[in-house]
């Protein structure tokens, strides 16, 4: 079902953990749907993401996309981090099954939520960053017939 890359990131997720006194923390998703992602960012005075950690409750794809998203933003500046889209995360993982695409959206949203928290705490405006939705709604359930 999953690509080798996804399985590799699921088995050995990068950057799992917490950051105390993080510059920004974002939590998205909800337990009802079975996915919650939390991203911690440590951003230095130059606006560079020095460190990033995550915690995720969710399926294999949710863990792998969180892991990959943290890899992609680490060492980047805030503006570059904003360019890390769900597409980029998916491509880096050699694709996801169609039913798991929402996991990559969640990962993008989690990064945005953490950046939003950082911007709010520091009273700055990050161009192109909107207030994140706390939940990713997943659209309507499919009709069976």
């Amino acid at each position: 079902m999953y690509s080798e890359k996804v399985m590799e990131h699921f088995s050995n997720p990068r950057n799992v953990g917490e950051i105390e006194n993080a510059s920004g923390v974002g939590t998205v998703g909800n337990a009802k749907c079975g996915d919650i992602m939390r991203i911690y960012l440590d951003i230095n005075n130059g606006g560079i993401i020095q460190d990033v950690k995550f915690k995720t409750f969710g399926c294999g794809a949710a863990v792998a996309t969180s892991s990959m998203a943290t890899e992609l933003v680490k060492g980047k500046n805030v503006k570059e981090a904003l360019q890390v889209t769900n597409k980029a995360v998916m491509e880096a993982l050699d694709g996801l099954p169609a039913v798991k695409v929402h996991c990559s959206l969640l990962a993008e949203e989690a990064i945005h939520a953490a950046l939003w928290d950082y911007a709010t705490k520091n009273n700055i405006v990050i161009e192109g960053l909107d207030k994140p939705k706390s939940d990713i709604s997943e659209g309507e359930a499919e009709e069976i017939y």
Binding site: M7, F10, G34, D35, C59, G60, A62
Partner: peptide, 24 residues
């Protein structure tokens, strides 16, 4: 505090076949 599909994949890596009622 944990999700079933992740649990199943990790069990599979240990050669254990099981199932779950999680959404995934």
């Amino acid at each position: 505090f944990i999700e079933g599909e992740s649990l199943l994949i990790m069990l599979d890596m240990q050669n254990i076949c099981a199932s779950s009622g999680s959404a995934c």
